[in-house]
Design a protein around this nucleic acid. Structure first.
Lengths: 195, 195
DNA sequence: GTCTATAGCAGGATAGAC
DNA sequence: GTCTATCCTGCTATAGAC
């Protein structure tokens, strides 16, 4: 065989992830991914469609990784723990991910919605993430499906991650803003004592 | 005169702003701005240096606009108002700006720090914005220089703006998450009643 | 200060051979 | 399924004439 099969969709996604970590989201492109794989750019189109398709696959993969880490963090919280401690564990895991692999987090959060293409029903990982968030927030509010509260917490965490990564906090850094915000949200979102 | 002066730095910035509003941050470029002005791209370089210089000028201008609106919102709060109402007015004005001119907000928040170039000491508008934020948060915490609390509120507002604009909330939208988060932060950040 | 002309670079995507 | 070869589009930035 003159041209044996060297690629697969999974291999292309793996290469994209490696490139993402090494060179950042701006460097993600068909040419660069092909270079990583030692292959010609044209070959990739048979496996991931086009660049947008590759990005969607990558976002899904990243969402799965984040979801797993959040799951582990929630599982590590002792059964009788304080509700605020549960939310703090979730928040710490979320921010730790954004700090450890900022390029993956950037790609994930820049992809509006994994437009449900035909194969394998993407977007499912996003829903899993949302479920983890609702669980963590539910521990604080007492309502296991408190959408507004979940939106609040997500907005705070995402905003913190983005501002920190963008250098918007300046040289002084966040200055305790993470713990302060998580604590404030936990107390402020909690069901009123008398209710 | 064969080539009368048609341009000025201010005119180029105005055109950039118009282009930004009409076509989004991705469309901002020397060619496009020149087209808006009916001029050749090469002419712009005498006025704004290069593309990065133009972006810095635009970010500064946008920061000034946002700062002014926040100022007006804070000034509109009655003197004896509740501390939570003050923060809510600030938050509403912030999000209203991000919704009304999303491209301007995106440019502003994407520019890490107006690198202080020689002319007119840029970056000053950012500091003004930070002062407004500290004032609004100080009304809630009682500390006029509570950095951690200000970081918390900014992270929440920016995160909300970004997620909403990016369509990350999905079809259902934020679902009351803004008011919920502002209320929770106001209560959670407030100085303890007994202190 | 504006113009013409051009250099230089990078990127996505396709047609058709093997 | 991979290859070669190529097209097309987009952009910043500079040199030198007027």
């Amino acid at each position: 065989m003159p041209y044996p099969a060297k690629l697969s969709q999974g291999a292309v996604v793996d290469a994209g992830l490696a490139l993402l970590d090494a060179a950042g989201p701006a460097a993600l492109g068909m040419r660069a991914v092909a270079d990583v794989l030692g292959v010609r750019p044209a070959s990739l189109y048979k496996h991931v469609g086009d660049l947008a398709g590759l990005e969607a696959l990558l976002a899904e993969r990243v969402a799965a990784g984040l979801s797993a880490e959040l799951d582990a963090a929630l599982a590590g919280v002792p059964p009788g723990a304080d509700a605020e401690a549960t939310l703090a564990a979730f928040a710490d895991a979320y921010i730790a991910f954004a700090r450890r692999v900022p390029s993956r987090y950037a790609l994930f959060s820049a992809t509006p919605y994994a437009v449900p293409a035909d194969p394998a029903r993407p977007g499912g990982e996003r829903r899993a993430l949302w479920a983890r968030l609702l669980a963590a927030v539910g521990a604080v509010t007492g309502d296991p499906d408190d959408t507004a509260a979940a939106v609040s917490v997500w907005a705070f965490l995402h905003g913190f991650a983005v501002l920190e990564r963008g250098g918007l906090f300046g040289a002084s850094g966040p200055r305790g803003g993470l713990a302060r915000g998580v604590g404030a949200l936990a107390r402020g979102l909690a069901r009123r004592a008398g209710a």
